[in-house]
Design a binder for these strands. Structure first.
Length: 338
DNA sequence: TCCACTCC
DNA sequence: GGAGTGGAC
């Protein structure tokens, strides 16, 4: 997913408290996908209510956003709009991969291969329309704003950082840097535990910040060249060049100064090159949004999660009390919130 | 208070 | 992922 240029980028580990009072534009798709793939029962089944609706994302949103907001972070969710036609191949591939994984999940389950089953269960995660709608409902009840991107959520989130309406884009992907976000935060979690892929081992992770300008300076390239490197490696809009990874792409772009010359040199081609480059440089975004953090509507949260989705009332109310306290009287950050 | 482990 | 629990210290 996204572009694999991570190893070129300098990241700075920070404490969550360092993000206090910052507005963070959360890449909704990325975050929801993360919740769906990770918040699961031991056999790999996602959390579900009694009617069979998936609820993993709701649990993730409720608890993580509550914790982040307790730290003084102001999240805004940015949802994907209509994807570019250039993304069609990637979307088809994701669908196919998901379908394969779903079949393999069943197979592994019937063979009693628990670990394998879990892995395929994760890979079968899908951010459905219903999951997006439910997430929006919960966000509204929690008083967290959200924005609909005309196209990519990541580009809209990057745009909001460029405009100064947000301080960071939160995403595990690197694409928002390609879209020109000057600050991106990864691993925006509380516990700081992350399961290693495949293995049943957990490692400590801290939020890490990437600064676009600093990275460009370090790599001695400009924004356009960073995009060209990504194009060489492969993005959601194009297949990467054969036998070219991020290190080699960087070297080639610096050496030849432009991707056209790189393509000549390696004797390969990238379809729709200019169009994709333009998509990163001039993405479709909107200024038509207002960011307003409101007091949580505890009744609505309880109604939605407990009556609607069988959450434990006791636990939900506890989370609501934490939320109310954030915006409540005696809170120093009160004026920062409204 | 710190974990491992379970439940959601 | 994050909350809750219970045993170990």
């Amino acid at each position: 997913m996204g572009t694999d240029i991570g190893e070129l980028l300098k990241k700075q580990q920070v404490e969550i408290s360092e993000l206090s009072h910052k507005v963070v534009a959360v890449d909704a798709y990325n975050t929801l996908y993360q919740f769906l793939s990770i918040i699961r029962q031991r056999d790999g089944t996602p959390l579900k209510d009694s009617r069979g609706n998936i609820t993993s994302h709701l649990s993730g949103i409720l608890y993580r956003m509550t914790s982040l907001m307790e730290e003084g972070i102001k999240p805004v969710f940015v949802f994907d709009g209509k994807p570019s036609h250039l993304k069609a191949r990637t979307i088809e591939k994701r669908t196919a991969d998901r379908e394969k994984a779903t079949i393999k999940w069943e197979e592994a389950k019937s063979k009693g291969l628990a670990e394998e089953a879990y892995m395929y269960a994760q890979a079968s995660s899908r951010v459905t329309h219903e999951i997006v709608e439910d997430s929006r409902k919960l966000l509204v009840a929690m008083g967290i704003p959200w924005v609909d991107a005309p196209s990519e959520g990541e580009s809209q989130a990057a745009h909001m950082v460029k405009r100064g309406d947000a301080n960071y884009v939160a995403s595990q992907d690197y694409d928002s840097l390609l879209f020109g976000a000057s600050f991106v935060v990864r691993n925006l979690t509380i516990t700081g535990k992350r399961k290693l892929p495949k293995k049943n081992i957990f490692v400590d992770v801290k939020p890490e910040i990437m600064e676009l300008g600093e990275n460009l300076a370090e790599l001695e390239i400009d924004q356009s060249q960073l995009i060209e490197i990504a194009l060489c490696v492969g993005t959601d809009y194009n297949r990467g060049l054969e036998k070219i990874g991020p290190k080699k792409a960087l070297k080639l772009i610096k050496e030849h100064r432009s991707i056209e010359k790189v393509l000549q040199a390696v004797g390969q081609n990238i379809e729709d090159l200019q169009e994709i480059k333009d998509l990163f440089l001039n993405p479709s975004v909107t200024d038509n949004y207002t960011l307003k953090w409101k007091k949580p509507d505890t009744d609505a949260i309880v109604e939605f999660l407990c009556q609607g989705h069988d959450f434990s009332k006791e636990r939900v109310i506890k989370a609501c009390e934490r939320l109310e306290k954030i915006s409540g009287p005696g809170q120093r950050t009160l004026d920062q919130w409204f």
